[in-house]
Simulated assay, not measured.
Amino acid sequence: MIHCRAPQNDAEFIQYYQLRWQVLRAPWQQPQGSEKDELEPSAIHRMIIDEQGNVLAVGRLHIDQYWCGHIRYMATASDAQGNGYGKVVIDALEAEASQRGVKKICLNARELAVAFYEKLGYQVTGSAHVLYDEIQHFRMEKSLREAKESHSELLKQLQSTWHQTIPMSLAMGMSADYFDGQQFVTHCDVSFNKNLHNTMFAGSIYTLATLTGWGWVYLSLQTANIDADIVLAKADIKYLAPIPDVACAKVDVNKIQGDVAQLSQSNKARFTLSINLFSGDKIAATFNGAYVAIKS
């Protein structure tokens, strides 16, 4: 059985980068290390690994400040080609991009890979660079489908509520990206929220987390057709790593205590949420908040 997921430890990252180098750099006598760039810490990495721990295919997604996704470093081991692993990696990266509110994926495909990407819905938009003076690349793009219409409307409603009632959220560029009843994902503008170290300002991280928790409760109430005021009763945050680039906040239903059904028996309901803030795949901060919904 194979699994498609992010590398989980240093040993897996070593294998992940080794496969990149073997497929994409070694045949052109490039040194180890040339398979990496400065975006690795803030990127989203996916690999296919088998039960024996062998890495069979890899790929990377990076989201830029304009919230466009870029897929790079796609590679499949020579003895694993022809099994559809490349499509599995692309599907996983696109799913992650979609959950983070990305509407368009861009990539530069080697000439021999253009047909592969065309089968997955990508279109050539022009010629790109020539790698090592011999490998022609082509720019390709694909638009991602938006969330279900009902959830899309709810997300627009929430974002409008934020921006109209909390001026800081508008200045921060807060965006409600994805909601399916199981997960809720948000992000904010990159450039506005940076500090003098060129990483995300701690106050912006806290605000993003606070409003994400508030947003989950809001969406849950709206889904149940319940009107209630929402207040933050208690919160704490742990800053685990700097966020040099795009950050997103995620709420998972499995990390929530409380139910809107409480409001059918009482005028109040309490929700306790645990929220992770990510820089790429890495958890950069954890936020725990207690919110109270008071029936209108």
Rank of each mutant, 00 (worst) to 15 (best):
275 I>F: 08
13 F>R: 11
51 E>V: 11
269 A>F: 06
73 Y>K: 12
243 I>K: 06
97 A>Y: 11
121 G>W: 09
32 Q>C: 04
91 D>K: 13
180 D>G: 08
213 G>F: 05
32 Q>D: 00
284 A>E: 04
70 H>V: 02
9 N>H: 11
120 L>F: 05
291 Y>G: 04
89 V>I: 15
47 M>R: 03
119 K>T: 06
199 T>M: 10
261 A>M: 10
181 G>I: 11
150 S>F: 04
258 G>K: 10
242 P>E: 07
294 I>N: 09
57 A>D: 02
171 A>Y: 15
191 S>Q: 14
50 D>R: 10
259 D>Y: 06
218 Y>I: 00
101 G>K: 10
263 L>T: 11
129 H>A: 09
286 T>I: 14
121 G>D: 04
258 G>N: 08
106 C>F: 12
153 E>G: 02
231 V>I: 15
125 T>E: 11
171 A>S: 13
258 G>F: 10
293 A>S: 14
93 L>M: 06
260 V>L: 03
83 N>M: 10
18 Q>D: 11
152 S>F: 09
241 A>V: 03
81 Q>D: 00
280 G>A: 03
279 S>P: 04
111 E>V: 05
60 R>C: 12
253 V>D: 01
142 K>Y: 09
26 A>V: 00
64 D>G: 07
9 N>V: 01
133 D>V: 00
255 K>V: 00
198 N>P: 03
67 W>A: 10
197 H>P: 02
107 L>R: 07
